[in-house]
């Protein structure tokens, strides 16, 4: 499972919404019901699974599923390439 798939699986696990129902423009809070407590769970799981640390300033930019996937993609790109 690659980083993007792992990310979608984690968002699905935390929100309870099936991965095939997740859309890039799904809002984490408004559409998926990921409140601040669940957002912290998501961050911790992302950091553990992908061995990264997300800065607090960057967290504010992660509003949609697409934002999270793009963020992970940017992080993965230097190491993959």
């Amino acid at each position: 499972m690659d980083a993007q798939q792992k990310t979608l699986k984690l968002i699905s696990d935390i929100s309870g919404v099936a991965t095939d129902k997740l859309k890039r423009d799904s809002q984490l809070v408004a559409d998926l019901g990921i409140d601040s407590a669940r957002a912290l769970h998501l961050l911790v799981k992302l950091e553990d699974e992908l061995d990264i640390e997300v800065d607090d300033d960057e967290v504010a930019e992660l509003q949609t599923v697409g934002n999270v996937l793009d963020f992970i993609g940017r992080y993965q790109a230097p190491t993959d390439g």
Binding site: L40, L43, E47, E53, D55, D56, V59
Partner: peptide
């Protein structure tokens, strides 16, 4: 203030 990273460090 800066609570998310602090909570994650404590975690």
């Amino acid at each position: 203030r800066g609570g998310l990273s602090s909570l994650r460090r404590l975690y």
